[in-house]
């Protein structure tokens, strides 16, 4: 197949849109999944620990 300017444009205009939408949905699910809430809460609090050892 010949890849010319029009093909590249069509590809970016369609797939560019689809993958960004898919990505946003994926990110939203990950962020708001109830089962992740505990890890996030822990992550945001534990960095404040004063212990300085691995």
């Amino acid at each position: 197949m010949d890849i010319d300017h029009a093909t590249a444009v069509a590809f970016s205009k369609s797939w560019g849109l689809f993958y960004l939408i898919a990505l946003s949905i994926g990110v939203l699910i990950y962020t708001f999944r109830p089962s992740n809430k505990k890890r996030f809460d822990r992550a945001k609090k534990t960095i404040l620990d004063k212990e300085d050892r691995p």
């Binding site: 990110v27 945001k44 609090k45 960095i47």
Partner: peptide, 27 residues
């Protein structure tokens, strides 16, 4: 996201928002 909460001794306001903005900025 690390030194500001550390210095203020307060956890980041919204952890979820920090994840959403990460992917937003990246893409």
């Amino acid at each position: 996201y690390y030194y500001l909460p550390k210095r203020a001794e307060r956890p980041i306001f919204s952890y979820r928002l920090s994840i959403l903005s990460f992917w937003g900025i990246t893409f």
